[in-house]
């Protein structure tokens, strides 16, 4: 099914990159989870990697305009998130799947996504078509009128992806979208990612290095709230070099090698400087 493209969508952008952070600091509770992050992302699929507690979720939440940055600058679609900005206009262009995806159990998939599209202030006339399209894109069409509580974990995840893409966002933030998906569904999901990445800035936070290697055009690796590495997946695989880091694939070895090197330099600053 095709949809009409509005003039606003094809208008030239006046910003260099969809997401731009400089020295970004974001607090999660008492801890500074993102601490001096410099990052720039534009259209494409960006895989956000990092160990637990690296600040992935906090970064995603601040880009989703849920958390206020504690310092530095964060510019999303050309709007500085720190200042007093028109959050409504910005939020209409963002799709967001939180890590802990909460939903209404008694709603059917279609009702829930319609509710979310109402929250996203989509025109009522476009909603049914957009909802159906989102459900079909994640492959849930046969379960569209089943209650959310009857879905398996992987299906809930897919419903979460559907609610994130229902408004055709310019920025799509997916926090751990592949958790609970079986291998076949992960392949479908990667195909969907590639398709979305042609005209959307997609940020996928994940633990699974192979997802990133397979579906992303760009890898962002953070540790302790700082950027450690940004490059194409091939660079990640090449980074392993001669030293045999832990991991079964080239990308995994590259991931662990980069992290280890970063931690060695971070723990001995005099050698680094």
């Amino acid at each position: 099914m095709v949809r009409a493209v509005s003039a606003a969508e094809t208008a030239a952008t006046t910003y260099a990159s969809a997401i731009h952070a400089e020295g970004l600091r974001v607090r999660a509770g008492r801890r500074m989870a993102v601490d001096g992050l410099d990052l720039s992302m534009d259209t494409g699929v960006h895989g956000l990697l990092g160990p637990n507690g690296a600040g992935k979720t906090t970064l995603v939440r601040s880009i989703a305009t849920v958390l206020r940055p504690a310092g530095g600058t964060l510019t999303v679609l050309g709007e500085k998130v720190n200042g007093r900005i028109d959050l409504r206009g910005l939020r209409r262009q963002i799709g967001y799947l939180p890590q802990e995806f909460g939903f209404y159990r008694r709603f059917t998939v279609r009702e829930f996504i319609e509710y979310i599209s109402w929250l996203k202030e989509m025109p009522a006339a476009e909603t049914p078509g957009a909802v159906q399209r989102a459900i079909e894109r994640v492959g849930l069409a046969d379960r569209a009128d089943h209650r959310m509580k009857t879905l398996s974990g992987g299906m809930v995840r897919r419903a979460g992806i559907a609610q994130a893409i229902v408004n055709d966002p310019r920025i799509l933030l997916l926090d751990e979208p592949t958790a609970g998906l079986d291998p076949d569904q992960r392949m479908q999901f990667r195909a969907l990612l590639r398709q979305l990445g042609t005209d959307t800035c997609v940020l996928v936070s994940t633990h699974l290095v192979e997802d990133v290697a397979a579906a992303c055009t760009d890898v962002v690796l953070i540790d302790n709230g700082r950027l450690v590495f940004q490059g194409v997946p091939a660079d990640l695989a090449a980074a392993a070099g001669e030293d045999a880091g832990a991991g079964d694939s080239a990308a995994e070895r590259g991931y662990s090698a980069i992290l280890r090197r970063h931690r060695e330099t971070a723990s001995s600053p005099e050698t680094a400087s």
């Binding site: 409504r88 209409r92 967001y96 939180p98 939903f103 929250l119 996203k120 609610q163």
Partner: peptide, 15 residues
Amino acid sequence: LDPAHELVVASPRAG
């Protein structure tokens, strides 16, 4: 008390 609160908070209608 609202399971979808994170989604509500990040939506344009929040406020």
